[in-house]
Amino acid sequence: MAAGPAPAPLHLVLGEDEFLTERATMGVVSAVRAATPAGEDPPVVSRLGGPEVTAAQLFELLSPSLFGEARIVVITGAAELGKDAVAAVLDAARDLPAETVLIVQHTGGGRAKTLAADLRKAGAEEHATGKITRHTEVMGFVRSEFRGLNVRVAPEACEALVEAVGTDLRSLASACDQLVADTGGKVDVEAVRRYHSGVVGVSGFTVAERAVVGDVAGAIEALEWAMHTGVPHVVLADALADAVNSLALVGTQRGVAPGDLARQGLPPWKVKKVQAQTRFWSIDTLGTALQVVSRLNGEVKGMAEDTSYALERAVRQVGTLAASA
């Protein structure tokens, strides 16, 4: 089999998400191995990193090999490397030995924060692995997973999968792969519900949907379970804001055709559901709810000392507003 095109020798995997970081790293490793000429041994993979790593250890690992074998060196936890270790990585990055590929995992912060920028200047190929928290980002991740599996999946099925599985990317990636394998690529809402009907989990969308129809007790119960199972507070706040903003879009344009609403940013499959929810709302209560979710957005991003309390208060307020309309 012919070898693939030679990958870049220097890679910067930049971001805080552990799953995406490892996936990007293994993607580079796989590409390097695929480019190995027929008849040659695949490169050896070595990992080293963290705050206790010394410059001497890095120098030994990154020095030219006496036997000239192909190597892949992965530096983990690069954001916490010491000054001498950072210098050793940069010296190697600027003049990598032949047959050596260097992959540096960096969060973008830490005591070695400037290393990321220096690696860019050295010509590193960058792989973004920042945390995905917003609803639109999670949905985009799910869609890209299905595209990578050569399957087209409707938005409502992607939404159903996130509602069933939650926002953990590793779990979502596994669920996408399993669904495609088990259904032969025919993934729809019914298939998602059939395969995940036994999943015990609550997403931010569950909380939001109960709140915007006035089910205060149900929304608080779902919120408590979501927080207990580790759903990020930013995700919960974003889901509530998305629900209220969708209601505002539809509720202030009663009678507008679904197609026209879709052109304003609301997916066609979602219009009917939101139109049904608008019966719980008036223009005045929607205006108040928009203020509630706007304040919550700031609170979960650092303005509140207790984000759990801020979330519960906002969910109660939205649910009460819906119940009073």
Rank of each mutant, 00 (worst) to 15 (best):
A87D: 14
P7I: 01
D41K: 15
M303F: 15
A70Q: 05
A314W: 07
V151I: 09
V244L: 09
A239H: 07
D260L: 14
G77D: 11
T183C: 04
K83W: 08
A226W: 01
A85L: 03
T21Y: 02
V13P: 01
L261E: 03
A181W: 11
R23M: 08
G50H: 04
G302V: 11
V207D: 03
V138D: 05
H106S: 01
K83F: 10
R147F: 10
S46N: 11
A34G: 04
R143L: 12
W281Y: 06
G110R: 01
T285M: 10
L249C: 03
F19K: 00
S171Q: 14
S65V: 07
D118K: 14
F67Y: 04
S324V: 14
G302Y: 09
S63R: 13
V142G: 02
V86R: 14
P43Y: 00
D215G: 02
G218W: 07
A56H: 12
A164R: 15
G82H: 09
Y309Q: 12
V293I: 10
K273V: 15
A226R: 05
P97H: 07
P64F: 10
G39N: 01
E22I: 00
V44G: 08
L311K: 04
L161M: 15
A98F: 08
L20R: 05
G49A: 04
C158I: 14
L249Y: 05
K113L: 11
R47N: 00
P258M: 09
V138Q: 08
G15S: 02
A289C: 05
A55H: 04
E312P: 00
E156V: 11
T107I: 09
P51D: 13
K273G: 10
P232C: 08
